[in-house]
């Protein structure tokens, strides 16, 4: 696939889903692995239900701001936002999305229509060869918290990147070490479990 010396990961979701923490986990793990890593976030009105985007770049690339067609990997926390962010990807990208929708206000109040999950998956699958849609919310709830969707997705992505032979992506051990450093100790066990569920979910799909 693309050159191994760099990997650009674009994360997108909705305020409150822990998008920034997930991105940071990958970054912290990259730092533990001793590779060059940078990240960019857009904060702002995240808490008020808006879209949250962030990117983490591993390896030989200076900027973590991704333009159109620059994401090698898209990690989406919400299916509609996965679809909206598709132009960030290119014909060689890989992608993962959570399938649990968070309908925006314009939909819940009865004006706009939320595209069906099938439609979303179909459109993204047409453009991206290796694309996985998983119910990360269900796995997070199984691990003990709806707040752990982000870590489920990082677990899934870790396994996926291993499978693709992406050596630049940090190992499971380093991600768990980063998790321990990053989340408060009282929620570490739930998050570790969420990570394992995500990690194993990918292996089941093989």
């Amino acid at each position: 696939m693309e050159r191994e010396e760099m990997l650009r990961i674009f994360c997108v979701g909705v305020g409150g889903q822990g998008v920034l923490l997930a991105t940071r986990l990958i970054g912290e793990a990259g730092l533990l692995a001793g590779i060059s890593v940078s990240m960019s976030e857009v904060h702002g009105m995240a808490q008020r239900g808006g879209v949250v985007e962030s990117a983490v770049v591993l390896g030989e690339r200076s900027s973590a701001v991704l333009g159109e067609g620059e994401a090698d990997v898209m990690l989406a926390f919400e299916p509609l936002e996965a679809l909206r962010a598709l132009p960030k990807c290119h014909s060689g990208s890989v992608a993962v999305t959570n399938t649990a929708p968070i309908p925006p206000f314009s939909v819940t109040q009865g004006g706009a229509a939320y595209p069906s999950i099938d439609t979303i998956v179909k459109i993204i699958s047409r453009e991206i060869n290796r694309f996985y849609a998983i119910d990360a919310l269900e796995l997070a709830l199984k691990a003990g918290s709806d707040q752990a969707v982000n870590v489920v997705l990082v677990g899934f992505l870790t396994s996926f990147m291993e499978n693709l032979g992406k050596k630049i992506f940090p190992s499971k051990d380093l991600l768990l070490a980063a998790l321990r450093r990053t989340v408060p100790s009282k929620i570490f066990d739930t998050n570790r479990l969420a990570f394992e569920f995500g990690y194993n979910e990918f292996r089941k799909l093989l």
Binding site: Q47, L80, H90, S91, S106, P115
Partner: peptide, 24 residues
């Protein structure tokens, strides 16, 4: 010559519901 083509926004449905921030 880019190695890969960017995915064109034209593959998306014409109108996706917007998600502006909102009072809590």
């Amino acid at each position: 010559k880019p190695r890969y083509e960017a995915i064109s926004p034209s593959v998306l449905p014409r109108e996706l519901p917007q998600r502006p921030p909102n009072l809590c």
